[in-house]
Amino acid sequence: MSHSSPVVSVSGVTKVFGEGDSDRVRALENINLDVHPGEFISLIGPSGCGKSTLLRLIGDLIKPSGGTVQVNGKSAHQARLDRDYGMVFQQATLYDWRTVRKNVQLPLEVMSYAREKREARAQEMLKLVQLEEFSRHYPWQLSGGMQQRVAIARALAFEPSLLLMDEPFGALDEMTRERMQMELLRIWSQTQTTVIFVTHSIPEAVFLSSRAVVMSPRPGRLAGIVEIDLPRPRAFETRESAPFFEKIVEVRECLRRDEVRVASA
């Protein structure tokens, strides 16, 4: 894996909000991270440790204060212009005035896909997230989990090489959340997209990822990386297996070690 050239390469990145102000926030400090093709990476850490900030830097929604972010061998900015990113946030942010089908087609319209191609892609994506029969519904007629599946379909519609997800299941109940995690793994294995997934749930990070990137706050930095080599496909049984619990402990230890270090410093 490590011999292929990275999809994302973050080196020496820092981010300071409100630079020059007295109340400036050092959100990220000296972040180095490589993400390889087909990986499922999760960013995990307590809230305020800069997970969203790192994700947004990679997606070129904000600019770093220092360091560089390379995506597919080019600048993050160029990667965004080349439409290399699909993004899914905690809020599904579907457009009220569009049906499910039309919401999935939104990026395709913006990117001037031909009509038949749009229809076909939307159909295919809705099939992937198993919402074909809801294609003519409006977003408010769907449950939160279904809305989030539409958002995933929309993000994948234009076949981006990199899927950025910021706590996409954060607003869902536990049961729906576990179902959505299974769905996401199925979609990931079918599309072979590289995923960077922000979460503050340790079991979620362990269940989904190939690597969990543990972050710690003030200033935000990497506390460690835990390889999650649990067998795939992961299923319901995975959550009850001993290696799963071992990995949870490992991530938790990593988070705690850092807390102790911060407290004693």
Partner: peptide
């Protein structure tokens, strides 16, 4: 931001 991510 969604629109921005599509480079709209």
């Amino acid at each position: 931001e969604l629109m921005r991510s599509y480079a709209a």
